[in-house]
Write a protein that binds this DNA or RNA. Structure first.
Length: 636
DNA sequence: TCACGGAATATTTTT
DNA sequence: TATTCCGTGA
């Protein structure tokens, strides 16, 4: 006798997905069809059936999603659900590699490089290989790192990626290939892994060493993967090897919501799942519980423009509701004013701010609106866009902590040393060489007169704290205290940044291992921008949400504004010029944005916007919306 | 070799 | 908007 009445709580398709526990299952779950609910109930169902919670593995897109599902499962059943193993493919791979990296010739204390670390490393290698300043038209370090990441995620050569996506740099193919190889070797010899390596090395490990594969795979009897449409082939291979022995694997996803192709995600993965796991039972969740019928009619027509025909149509039993609006403005200011005014009207009617979201294609699209919201004293939280962890002051402090934990971390040393007065790139390089390559002791470094004072202060800091200390936040405090004078000298807006640093120290409080803190902060950084991060502790919860469409995936609100629905912004100029695949992805992205709305949906666009890349004015609404007929989308 | 100021530059999207 | 680039002077 079960505690939960599954048949009553779920619709027939959902129930089937929950109750089919053995063998491979593919759940094609449309937007708002109760996907999270289904996964949550399935966790509870398995646990209630007597499956050991720690033999269930739940792989999700963000760790927060996993935590949320397990929290809800625990509410349904009991806290046994807390013991379910959950996380992202990256964090899962990270755990595996910490145990088994030795088999690949890595130390288990390998260091994870985040994106800007990769860029710095790439830049250093480029300088070594090409000491003379490269000719104009050579890609900058961000671009090089993107190219290399594409190579890793798509399993292609540098030349192939260049030909496909960066044809303007094809003439530099040989130099870039050389840098790529040096980059790969350097990571191996210096015990470094970037995000892509976490997946690649895990796949290599599981493929090469059957004993290890069994040791890892045998821990999990049941595997569930959420957002499967956004996995890439490396992740699919890992899943295949984990699930090979029992095939109790459930993949959940929606092919129309695949929006991470730029990261190597391949939405065809989801359609190939039945080939990988023969005998897959396919279940479709097509009843929508989120949006009103008019919104659903509009989004259905939107997605039907895709060349590729998707496999389902959503329906709802909910009646009533208003059709979405498409509203045109003369400029960005009036667009912002409209959003602010409309939100005011809604809140006057009793709608909570937290039930409203403003979505956009790229982080900077909300700059002007943010100014207006601040003027109107409307509290908001911004997700996506510029990140807390990427700001210079946070990275500075983390570099000190990293050098403490990994004394051979050249990148962090370079950063730390360059902060000292009187130290420039040359001195920093030389000192790092002495410290890391020659293994020199801190005391044996002979600083020049110009930077003696700074060096002594740095040495004092490093000697006063120990990386093994379980009081991680005390380490943070010591570093922040040391860093304060540098902060004030470097940044005019240091008070704001100082608050960020306080927030960082606060985040360290729940850790008792510095290494674990640093790994977590790299793999799962907070998704909000810096100012909001600081605000989130104090201010009230009723705040408007501003978010990139990517960061809004899986969320829902009563009212949704999609701003900058302007052809050339959404879809972006970049995608328009690349056509086909890229444009299809933009369409899916617009679909994801639209399907976030429960009751009210507004698209807005300003006109007469000059686009320097295209060299022309933009004034047409998004082509995806132009194609929707006026009965389904009302123009104003 | 380093510091500084002003100008360019970039903006998709994220683990 | 924030970082990065570049030239100049110390």
């Amino acid at each position: 006798m079960k505690i939960i009445d599954y048949q009553n709580d779920l619709n027939p398709a959902q129930y089937e997905a929950v109750a089919t526990t053995s063998g491979p299952v593919l759940v094609i779950a449309g937007a708002g069809s109760g996907k999270t609910r289904t996964l949550t109930y399935r966790v509870a169902y398995l646990v209630e059936s007597g499956v050991r919670p720690d033999s269930i593995l739940l792989l999700t897109f963000t760790r927060r999603a996993a935590e949320e599902m397990l929290r809800r499962a625990a509410l349904l059943l009991d806290n046994r659900c807390d013991d379910v193993a959950g996380g992202t493919f990256h964090s899962f791979s990270h755990q595996v590699l910490r145990r088994f990296a030795g088999r690949l010739g890595f130390s288990p204390r390998f260091l994870i490089l985040d994106r800007s670390d990769c860029e710095a490393l790439v830049e250093n290698i480029r300088k070594e290989i090409m000491p003379i300043k490269p000719v104009k038209g050579f890609p900058r370090k961000q671009t090089i790192a993107s190219i290399f990441s594409a190579c890793a995620n798509k399993g292609a050569s540098v030349e192939a990626i260049l030909a496909d996506e960066y044809s303007q740099f094809l003439s530099h193919a040989s130099a870039l290939t050389e840098i790529y190889h040096a980059y790969t070797v350097r990571k191996q010899t210096e015990n470094l892994m970037d995000f892509d390596d976490l997946l690649l090395h895990t796949r290599a490990l599981l493929a090469a060493d059957e004993q290890t594969r069994q040791a890892v795979a045998s821990r999990y009897e049941y595997i569930m993967v959420d957002e499967y449409q956004d996995t890439n082939t490396v992740q699919a291979d890992i899943l295949k090897m984990l699930g090979r022995d029992h095939a109790n694997v459930m993949a959940v996803g929606d092919d129309c919501q695949s929006i991470y192709a730029f990261r190597g995600a391949n939405f065809e993965n989801i359609m190939r799942f039945p080939d990988v796991f023969p005998g897959t039972k396919i279940i479709r969740l097509e009843q929508n519980y989120r949006s009103t019928q008019p919104i659903l009619s509009m989004t259905n027509q939107l997605v039907n423009q895709a060349r590729r025909k998707y496999s389902k149509t959503l329906f709802t039993e909910a009646q009533g509701g208003q059709a979405p609006y498409l509203v045109r403005f003369g400029d960005e200011k009036s667009q912002s004013a409209f959003v602010v005014d409309t939100i005011r009207e809604l809140t006057a009617k009793g709608v909570y701010l937290s039930e409203i979201a403003v979505l956009f294609r790229a982080g900077f699209h909300s700059f002007d609106l943010e100014v207006e919201l601040t003027k109107a004293r409307m509290p908001y939280i911004k997700m996506g866009g510029f990140k807390f962890m990427e700001s210079a002051h946070i990275k500075d402090v983390l570099a000190h902590l990293r050098a403490l934990a990994w004394p051979n971390d050249r990148l962090s040393w370079l950063r730390i040393l360059a902060l000292l007065d009187g130290v420039g790139p040359k001195t920093a390089q030389k000192t790092v060489h002495n410290l890391c390559n020659l293994g020199a002791d801190l005391n044996s470094i002979k600083p020049g007169a110009a930077w003696k004072e700074g060096w002594e202060r740095l040495k004092g800091l490093l000697k006063s704290i120990s990386p093994a200390s379980p009081m991680v936040s005390n380490l943070g405090k010591a570093v922040v205290e040391y860093y304060e004078p540098i902060l004030k000298e470097q940044f005019d807006n240091w008070p704001k940044r100082a608050r960020d640093l306080e927030q960082l120290v606060f985040m360290m409080e729940r850790y008792d291992s510095l290494e674990r803190f640093l790994a977590d902060v790299t793999l799962e950084p907070p998704n909000t921008s810096s100012q909001e991060q600081a605000l989130s502790v104090s201010s009230s919860n009723d705040r408007l949400v501003l978010s990139t469409v990517h960061s809004a995936k899986g969320l829902e609100w009563d009212t949704v504004f999609v701003i900058w629905a302007l052809d050339g912004r959404f879809p972006s100029q970049h995608a328009i010029s690349r056509r086909d695949e890229a444009l299809e992805e933009e369409l899916r992205l617009m679909y994801v944005a639209s399907t976030r709305a429960k009751k009210r949906l507004y698209f807005t666009y300003p006109t007469d916007v000059f686009d320097p890349i295209a060299g022309e004015f933009l004034h047409h609404p998004s082509r995806f919306l132009s194609a929707v007929d006026s009965g389904r989308l009302r123009r104003l």
